[in-house]
């Protein structure tokens, strides 16, 4: 067999190979885009689906969780469930809980985190009080009984981190005029998002206090904001200390209340203002 005879089919082979590859790439790019779109869609975690304690941030979680359900199995309170396709909001097969159904009881030994084989639930979480499953928000201040001036206090009483995560802040009841309002107030740095408050809110149907994922519940202060009453350090080292300007001639503060010269007073005999102890050249005495 001569090389010449061979060249024709070989070219055909190459062309076919290239065609096939192009088709393969195109097909897979299409399928990949479809899959990518589906994933971005499925990534949108609904607000009331809370991840288990120690769960990584949602994006990292979806790279880590293999959807094995071991956390679900080891939760003694049946808090956690694996999301079912089309029924639950979170990505199919991933663990979550709904506070109003069964909240997290904040087990001291955190069995769900211990069970997780992948680190999707971060084993660095050793103290359940450090969990950040979400943040409770008193979301309906018109129907919360305490907000109406009654003493329900249930969300406050059930909180495992009572008096730290949630406090009752007293204020005057303007409506009755002589009562107090004990406003349930959540402190996000201490709230674990366990959802016990939401679960036990006495309102029928939806709770007035709800645990929301931090990404929804929390705003973020801009980097350069500074609470002057907490942080007393000057913004800039070596502040230029400009002389304080006193009201007086040569300044724009000519209309200082009470004037600055006896002549300017309605009654010149009146003791008004003060006499500056200095004099700018070329001004009236």
């Amino acid at each position: 067999m001569s090389a010449k005879k061979n060249s024709q089919p070989r070219q055909m082979d190459r062309r076919r190979f290239l065609q096939d590859s192009a088709r393969g790439i195109a097909g897979c790019a299409l399928a990949g885009m479809g899959l990518g779109y589906f994933i971005s869609d499925a990534r949108a975690l609904p607000a009331q689906a809370l991840r288990p304690p120690g769960a990584l941030a949602e994006d990292d979680f979806l790279a880590a969780c293999i959807r094995c359900g071991l956390c679900v199995r080891d939760c003694p309170y049946n808090t956690l469930v694996l999301a079912e396709l089309g029924r639950d909001g979170p990505a199919t097969g991933t663990p979550f809980f709904t506070a109003r159904d069964i909240p997290c009881e904040m087990c001291e030994d955190i069995p769900c985190v211990l069970a997780c084989p992948t680190g999707a639930l971060d084993p660095a979480l050793r103290d359940i009080d450090d969990a950040k499953m979400g943040v409770a928000v008193l979301i309906d201040q018109e129907n919360c009984l305490n907000a109406l001036g009654l003493r329900c206090d249930v969300c406050y009483r059930v909180c495992p981190v009572i008096d730290e995560a949630i406090t009752l802040e007293r204020s005057h009841n303007e409506r009755s005029g002589h009562h107090a309002i004990f406003m349930p107030t959540v402190h996000a740095d201490k709230c674990t998002g366990c959802g016990k408050c939401e679960k036990s809110c006495v309102l029928p149907g939806e709770a007035a206090i709800k645990v929301l994922p931090a990404r929804i519940a929390r705003a973020e202060a801009a980097d350069h904001y500074k609470l002057g009453w907490e942080d007393r350090n000057p913004l800039v080292d070596d502040l230029i200390d400009l002389p304080d300007r006193l009201p007086g001639p040569g300044t724009d503060n000519l209309a200082a209340p009470g004037g600055y010269l006896p002549e300017a007073m309605p009654d010149p005999g009146m003791e008004g203002g003060f006499t500056p102890s200095f004099k700018l050249p070329g001004t009236r005495p």
Binding site: F38, I39, G69, E84, L85, G86, R87, T92
Partner: peptide, 25 residues
């Protein structure tokens, strides 16, 4: 940055569905 195939994998969906609940899987 996700375990991509698990969003659609019929294998794990069926297996997980039988054990944990099927939904529309």
């Amino acid at each position: 940055g996700t375990i991509a195939w698990e969003f659609v994998n019929p294998v794990s969906m069926l297996h997980r569905g039988l054990i944990f609940g099927m939904g529309l899987a």
